[in-house]
Design a protein around this nucleic acid. Structure first.
Length: 266
DNA sequence: AATGGGACCTGCGCGC
DNA sequence: TGCGCGCAGGTCCCAT
């Protein structure tokens, strides 16, 4: 579910709502989502710690704690954080000072919670490419020139650039008017510049609107993200292209659905 | 290096 | 109404 804009939205909501609070109790309702340490040690170690800092790297949320450790949360496809939560149907419930509960919900159980001493040493983090907002145009051009991979799966490759997923990859390429099947290195200088601009534009606009709620994603408050109304191609197979009126096409790339306009994206 | 497939899970909507 | 299939904002692992 959540890509960079959704995770960033949750990060900002969390910062407002729970930064500085103490975790008074942890209830593990489904131990499957706890990857390390053991669910019992996870619970025991977390109780009593205070949330000192809240960060995001790619699609990963990081809560730095008063003992120097970090709680990392990857929402994968259907993970949600809700505060104040209901502590019902949640996979893990974090009780905080003040009596309210932060719920980690996750229908498909792909989500991953970890309590670790140094989040920067996580294999997943080590493999991440640059944050889109830290990326310079010169570096981006250079990175593209080395890649034969099709541009859409390339944008989704977390080792290339961190944070872009299936939905925003389609939206970004539509706005940049680039065909998703083009090899990365085939883009002209001008196209690379446009793509670079649209990555930042689409992601920042999506953050501004609280992300995209399609099925599961909700903000910390439980409210829906509002960016769906700005979507131009994602999920619009067969519907008219907002630019030319032709039908939006859907193809499969790397097992994921790609939406685009054959006429507008070259 | 690039690409394709399957795996991890649950639940929804669709066609029959 | 019920069943089977395909599909879903992610990532990892293995094969070619």
């Amino acid at each position: 579910m959540p890509e960079l804009p959704e995770v960033e939205t949750i990060k900002r909501d969390l910062t407002k709502m729970i930064l500085g609070k103490k975790i008074t109790e942890v209830r593990v309702n489904n131990p499957m989502v706890i990857r390390e340490p053991s669910p019992a040690a996870f619970k025991r170690s977390l109780e009593g710690l205070t949330i000192k800092n809240i960060l995001r790297r790619g699609k990963l949320l990081i809560l730095e704690l008063s003992n120097g450790q970090a709680l990392t949360i990857h929402l994968k496809m259907t993970g949600q954080l809700v505060y104040p939560g209901k502590a019902k149907n949640s996979r893990v419930a974090f009780h905080l000072t003040g009596g309210k509960v932060l719920d980690f919900n996750d229908q498909r159980l792909f989500g991953e919670l970890r309590l670790i001493s140094d989040w920067k040493k996580l294999k997943f983090v080590q493999g991440l490419g640059p944050e889109p907002f830290d990326l310079t145009l010169a570096d981006f051009k250079d990175m593209l020139s080395k890649k034969k991979t099709k541009i859409k799966p390339l944008l989704m490759d977390q080792g290339f650039v961190a944070g872009i997923g299936n939905l925003y990859a389609s939206e970004i390429l539509f706005r940049a008017k680039i065909n998703p099947e083009r090899p990365g290195q085939s883009l002209a200088g001008k196209e690379k510049e446009t793509l670079y601009r649209e990555i930042k534009e689409v992601l920042s606009s999506a953050i501004k609107h609280g992300g995209s709620s399609i099925d599961d994603y909700v903000r910390l408050s439980g409210k829906r993200g509002d960016y769906v109304r700005f979507h131009q191609v994602y999920g619009r197979e067969g519907k008219p292209c907002v630019t030319c009126g032709g039908p939006v096409k859907k193809i499969t790339q790397g097992g994921r659905g790609t939406y685009f306009c054959l006429k507008c994206q070259r």
